[in-house]
Amino acid sequence: MVSFQRIDGYVLTPQGFIRGFIEQENGRITRIEGEPVSESQVRHDTVALPIVLPGFIDVHVHGGGGHDTMEGGEAALQMSKLHVRHGTTSLLATTMTAPLEDIRNAIAALAPVCRERAKNGARVLGVHLEGPYISPAKLGAQPDFAKPASLDEIHALHALAPIRLITLAPELPGTLELIAQLRAEGFQVQIGHTAGTYEDGVAALQQGAGGFTHLFNAMTGLHHREPGMVGAALAHARYAEIIPDLLHVHPGAIRVAMRSIPCMFCVTDSTAAAGMPDGDYKLGSHTVTKCMGGVRLPDGTLAGSTLTMDQALRNLVGMGLEIEDASRRVSTFAAEYMGLSDRGQLAVGAWADLVVMDRALQLQRVVVEGEEIDLA
């Protein structure tokens, strides 16, 4: 394993940028020193030092490099190797709505990948269970196997591999009560694929739901007399996912969400088509087509994305965000949301998860837990 000892450049710390260096030992950051600088200096300094940011964290990713989480086997391993080459240092492998036996098999196959990080791979922190406990009226690209949630089923799946995040539709019978139980047991819960009302959303947040799955997509929209689930998020949420591929959500709507939701963070919702040429790919039991920069079902419905987190960062900066703000939305806020105090920031004692970028925010180096990733 190739490990870095020291990297010099403009290092983004929790207090802002410094011009200095970062050191690590045994996968943990041991030293950060330098002089504070403004972002303007970082952007315009003619020395052209590299920019060092926290590694990206993606809590909603279905696949990549031609592999889909639901395939089991080595799919998640290969997915982690694709996304790490785009700066994602840790992720949640995300399942699809499917017959319970298919979900069980997929999660069982994830267990070894969650236990041990592969060389040249991202850290797979666990599972995001996106379905089957969602609304049949708001499937989006999910197959039609939605069903009411069951605590016993969730426990059984969690025994196979660590489930860290669960998407639920709060309007389904018994779900509100279940949210409080899940939160008490340490699961993070978010609201998504829901036909619920504004009131359903508020009630779910009061029960302990922490955020919203791919905000705006597959949920009831905002109307001034029926605020819907989007209205509940904009009015009350601290955290929410958003897919900033500029296809799923208009940049104007992203700006609205950023003004309303303090810690809105980015996910890719990427599919097997990420990092691959145009063509047909699997998304759970669906066949989807990658073309014109997107992924769609035969009827034209958006079916996940081909987004990578480095492009998500560039898209946010292209919309006018400061690099520091964009970095928080692809790293820090997701770490906070998932209770990861030692990831998503460059600080002494944290894991040495970082990306090194040039002035155009193109990746030069990726480091996961001190290991230098081969980007070839």
Rank of each mutant, 00 (worst) to 15 (best):
D144W: 07
I191P: 02
D245Y: 03
A137M: 15
G20M: 03
S38G: 12
E226R: 15
M309H: 07
R85P: 06
A98I: 11
L346T: 02
A93H: 09
E39Q: 14
A109F: 03
G126Y: 02
C291N: 14
A232R: 04
C291M: 13
F17H: 05
A106G: 15
G63I: 08
A108D: 11
S38Y: 12
H86M: 09
A350L: 03
L49I: 10
T287D: 05
G66S: 09
M70P: 09
A232Q: 07
G252R: 12
H224E: 10
M309Q: 12
S150C: 14
G196P: 07
R259D: 13
G196K: 01
R329P: 04
M229Q: 13
K119A: 14
F216Q: 02
C263V: 12
Q15H: 09
A273D: 01
I191D: 03
T287S: 07
M264R: 05
I323E: 09
S285L: 14
V267R: 01
E369P: 09
P99D: 09
R183C: 03
M309T: 09
H44Q: 12
R314V: 04
G192S: 06
E33C: 14
V189E: 03
G73H: 03
Q5W: 11
V256Q: 13
I154Y: 07
S341C: 15
R117A: 00
A180H: 11
A232Y: 04
G73N: 04
L307C: 07
H60E: 06
G20V: 03
A257T: 05
R343Y: 00
R329Y: 09
H86L: 10
V113E: 10
G275K: 07
T308F: 10
G208Q: 06
G284V: 02
S305P: 07
Q206A: 08
V330H: 06
P136Q: 04
G370Y: 01
V84K: 00
A253T: 12
M264K: 02
Q5L: 13
P50S: 08
L49F: 10
D269P: 07
G186L: 06
V355G: 01
V2S: 14
A118M: 05
T88A: 05
T69E: 08
D325V: 14
G210K: 05
F21K: 13
H44I: 09
A161T: 03
M70Q: 08
G192C: 03
A75H: 09
I154V: 07
K282I: 12
I57S: 00
M1E: 02
R238Y: 11
E71N: 05
M264V: 13
A195D: 10
L234R: 01
L92N: 09
A169W: 05
L205A: 05
C266E: 06
G63D: 03
P50G: 06
V366I: 11
D45Y: 12
M229K: 06
V356Y: 03
Q15V: 08
A141E: 04
I18S: 04
A203I: 04
V267L: 00
H286Q: 14
Q345T: 15
K81Y: 04
D102N: 12
L168N: 14
K147F: 01
A118P: 11
L313E: 06
A106F: 02
T197W: 08
L100H: 11
N105Y: 15
L316M: 13
L340A: 05
T197V: 01
A274C: 08
L205Q: 10
A233V: 05
D245I: 00
T197H: 05
F56E: 03
G201C: 02
R164W: 04
E153S: 09
E25V: 11
